[in-house]
């Protein structure tokens, strides 16, 4: 019986190169970063919660900043483009809820700057994330003071608020550590896919 026998066509077709096996769907989804829309809604919620429920929570004059932690996480996780634009949006939210324009530039640069680190570090590294949060808090505070001094003529904000800014860095770093630990825990249990 020849191999060209039409009756054996199925056997002949099996000889060809086999198609590459599709990767499991679940593995493909793990690497998908969150959508910008979701992050934007998260930023809005963070701003609202920060301006309401957490407004009374302070430590030595320093308030928790969910927005900075979210912007830094986004920058590390998604890169400069998403990080930068989310920083801009977060700054706009912070200013719309009562910042008078002193936050937007600092948040934008914080998001962009942490986005630059994304290509060099793992986003779920504790030291990198916490250092980035501390740096972003400091940068945001510095630019806020500069804006206050230049735009509103309010001198002496650095002298007056630097102590509070240091405590804000510590508070935000603690929040970042807790948030990252929760994300890691959620990923290990399959509850979060980021």
């Amino acid at each position: 019986m020849s191999s060209l026998d039409p009756a054996r066509a199925d056997e002949r077709l099996r000889i060809g190169p086999s198609a590459p096996r599709r990767r499991a769907r679940v593995d493909a989804e793990i690497s998908v970063p969150p959508r910008f829309g979701v992050l934007a809604v998260l930023a809005l919620c963070a701003g609202i919660v920060q301006s309401t429920v957490l407004s009374g929570v302070e430590f030595r004059g320093a308030h928790i900043s969910l927005l900075i932690v979210l912007v830094v996480w986004t920058g590390l996780r998604c890169g400069v483009v998403t990080g930068g634009w989310l920083g801009l949006l977060a700054g706009l939210i912070a200013d719309a809820l009562g910042g008078n324009g002193v936050n937007v530039l600092g948040f934008t640069l914080a998001g962009f700057g942490t986005g630059l680190l994304a290509s060099r570090f793992f986003w779920d590294s504790f030291p990198v994330f916490i250092a980035a949060v501390a740096g972003a808090t400091a940068l945001s505070a510095l630019l806020s003071w500069a804006t206050l001094a230049i735009a509103f003529g309010e001198r002496g904000a650095f002298v007056r608020d630097s102590h509070t800014a240091v405590w804000a860095m510590i508070v935000n770093c603690a929040l970042a550590a807790i948030a990252l630990a929760l994300v890691r825990f959620g990923r290990s249990r399959g509850m979060i896919r980021t």
Binding site: L88, G91, L92, D95, A96, G99, N100, G101, V102, V104, L105, T108, L109, T147, A151, F152
Partner: peptide, 9 residues
């Protein structure tokens, strides 16, 4: 960001 900041200020 600068435009937004200037508008807010």
């Amino acid at each position: 960001a600068s435009v937004v900041m200037l508008i807010e200020i």
